[in-house]
């Protein structure tokens, strides 16, 4: 008997010595999934409420106080709908696309430092990982559209791919500039470098990048285009393409695409916060923490909504012109300029 309890205790110690890391990871995965889910649901509410306010109407206000239960009811509705797989679709790709579209965002959020100690993984190639996974998202939506066997979906997929190819370039050029300036791809370190008053943020790094605000703007515009948000939402232009690549998706299949869109916005805004707005650093150099990160990120997300309800959709050639004729040359120029300045003013 004594022997058995000894063995059990030994076993327990062994498990305990193994557990901390996996347990922490599981908690983070659950946390990120919950965070993304809650955000996707409530960003829809923010979007609809914002749309209402921008048009001088109250927005959803019947379900719960200020319409706050609307996302819950919407979610229940989506989940209770029948999942229809239309005849003639590529079943595997059709069912797999929603998973493929959601997974990369969740993976990428693992490296985003929400505060000094709140990040699932502190990888020293975090930025690289985010952009590597970021490109899977487009491919997943394209596969979904292609597998749907629907004209609208195929046109939408084609648009999405050419749009994303066009906007990936200026975005990566901007990111290369930032990596050069900060000298690291570790998101945590990038934030730590921006400690102190707000003029230490990369957005106001006049010395090395006099065009830093322009760089930020390019990043933000590319983020809008990559997430297919208005005014760059040609891929799911309702008036032309019904629901674009998501036309054939019913119920939660569509819901997951929708969640992924908001999760991507969340990721893009978090990256903009980390790269340019000092992440969790407070603007006054004291009391830094999670609150500041969330405040900055949600402000950027609100701006996304603000832009959507201000500008009409651009035309497709306008979109490509903007990328190839303006954003890419300007971002190349900032890259060259800041590399020259870094050499001249070490």
């Amino acid at each position: 008997m004594q022997n058995l309890s000894d063995h059990l205790a030994q076993g327990w110690h062994f498990v305990q010595s193994l557990w901390p890391e996996p347990l922490r990871l599981i908690l983070f995965v659950a946390g990120i999934v919950a965070f993304v889910g809650a955000n996707a649901a409530y960003l829809v509410w923010v979007e609809r409420k914002g749309a209402g306010r921008f048009q001088r109407r109250p927005g959803p206000n019947e379900v719960g106080p200020a319409g706050l239960l609307q996302p819950v009811v919407d979610g229940l509705k989506l989940m209770s709908k029948q999942l229809i797989v239309p005849a003639g679709v590529d079943r595997v790709l059709f069912r797999g696309a929603p998973l493929l579209v959601m997974a990369p965002v969740l993976m990428s959020l693992a490296v985003v430092p929400f505060s000094a100690s709140l990040a699932a993984r502190n990888i020293n190639v975090g930025l690289l990982m985010v952009f590597a996974f970021g490109s899977i998202n487009v491919m997943a939506v394209m596969l979904g559209g292609w597998a749907s066997r629907n004209k609208y979906a195929v046109i939408s997929s084609a648009r999405m791919v050419s749009q994303n190819v066009a906007y990936e370039i200026p975005m990566l050029l901007v990111v290369i500039t930032m990596v050069m300036l900060t000298g690291t791809m570790n998101l945590n370190e990038i934030v730590q470098q921006q400690a102190g008053w707000f003029w230490h943020w990369n957005l106001f790094d006049w010395k090395h990048n006099p065009l830093a605000p322009v760089t930020f703007l390019i990043f933000y515009i590319c983020m809008l285009a990559e997430t297919n948000r208005a005014p760059f939402d040609m891929a799911e232009a309702e008036s032309e393409l019904v629901a674009g690549a998501y036309t054939e998706y019913a119920g939660m299949g569509f819901g997951v695409f929708f969640m992924a869109e908001y999760a991507n916005i969340l990721l893009g805004c978090s990256l903009a916060t980390v790269l340019f707005l000092g992440g969790w650093q407070s603007p006054f150099g004291v009391l830094s923490g999670l609150v500041w990160f969330l405040a900055k990120m949600y402000f950027l997300i609100f701006t996304v909504v603000w832009i959507r309800w201000t500008f009409p959709r651009t035309q497709f050639y306008g979109l490509l012109n903007l990328s190839w004729k303006i954003l890419i040359p300007v971002s190349l120029f900032t890259l060259v300029l800041s590399s020259a300045l870094m050499k001249l003013l070490p």
């Binding site: 914002g50 921008f54 001088r56 109407r57 109250p58 603000w306 309800w309 201000t310 500008f311």
Partner: peptide, 18 residues
Amino acid sequence: TGMRITIGQFFKPVVTVQ
């Protein structure tokens, strides 16, 4: 300018009849 106008409208009272 467009964004300034829309944010101005954002904080004005609702005009629709409930």
